[in-house]
Design a protein around this nucleic acid. Structure first.
Lengths: 195, 195
DNA sequence: CCTACCGATCGGTAGG
DNA sequence: CCTACCGATCGGTAGG
């Protein structure tokens, strides 16, 4: 059972991930993090510039990860319904596979400061525009309901991200089951009902 | 234009509501609240026992309000689809009409301490069970999709509550429009698709 | 990475 | 006894 040789930096990131996710960024002191690792608080500053820097390392590139997976799906040649379904499945899988980090992201987003906040916001807008574009394409084909595509995209993200509120690894439902449930619910919710 | 004679207590509650909602509970000091009202921080303690007490006054009975409106709908004689639609419309209207308070509720829920947290949890469970019961009734009539009713209820709440993330009063969309959009999306998302 | 600290600010309380 | 506060400061903890 040879453990991967974790660096101190990785240990700090891992423990901070758990603590920030469970108790919040402001509620968790660097002393809490240091205690769990058996080192002093000042030692932390050998590895990270500040508490802000630690937070940014945890949540700064989550948006890029989502966008990377989404772009090829949105640019593929499938129909809008299939695209949206695939986009949402990928979204839920990514979010729930990194549930601690995304929980921190959504709860502590505002703690990163104005310039980084703008950067996060740009990423979010690009991602939302991508999904809104797919929804708009489905509306033009008369398969999705009318309504502001951007608002519908935000609602669909709200549905998908809400799984973070109750999802727990190894708790009844698998990530893939939740991803299928949510994507089906979102796509059917947007579909013009036939009867 | 005679303003209602606002007591100091109401003034404090109103300003704390805005500040906690905008910047967070821990991020807002009692000094910030006091400054906005032109009084000293110790004066605050004449009106409230503690910062915790202030938070509780803002979010402690939001759940009761939701439950009060939901019970008569759930107990009415309508079919499950109509019940769910009405439940969700009432939910969204209530939540968005008190958007600052509910934003605080969802973001700072954990700050109220263990015993009050249990109380909130009990209220949430009762409310979720109510909606899960309506969903289960719809499943028995083969109008709603299969799946754990409790999970489906949580997803539906997630969709409804996500509107708090982007809703702003006097911004394009009316509360009633959002309520109808969300309830239609949720009900159709749960419906077994006919074609 | 530790010991020994700092400037500031936190929530909360004293007497009047 | 009540109300509506004030100036000063408490013990602790924050990030650095």
């Amino acid at each position: 059972m040879a453990r991967a040789p974790e660096t101190r930096e990785q240990q700090i990131l891992g423990h901070a991930l758990k603590l920030f996710s469970q108790s919040g960024y402001r509620e968790t002191s660097l002393q809490d993090v240091a205690d769990q690792l058996g080192l002093t608080r000042p030692a932390f500053y050998y590895y990270f510039k500040s508490k802000d820097e630690l937070l940014w390392r945890l949540i700064g590139n989550l948006g890029d990860g989502l966008l990377e997976k989404a772009v090829p799906i949105a640019e593929s040649k499938r129909d809008p319904v299939a695209k949206l379904q695939e986009l949402l499945q990928a979204h839920v899988r990514t979010v729930l596979s990194n549930s601690d980090a995304f929980r921190i992201y959504f709860a502590e987003r505002h703690e990163v400061g104005p310039s980084r906040d703008r950067r996060l916001r740009r990423g979010e807008r690009a991602y939302a525009d991508l999904v809104a574009g797919v929804i708009a394409a489905g509306q033009r084909r008369r398969v999705f309901k009318r309504g502001e595509p951007k608002v519908l995209a935000l609602l669909v993200f709200g549905l998908a991200n809400s799984s973070l509120r109750w999802y727990r690894p190894r708790g009844g439902l698998e990530v893939s089951e939740i991803a299928e449930l949510i994507s089906a619910m979102a796509v059917d919710g947007l579909r013009i009902q036939s009867p």
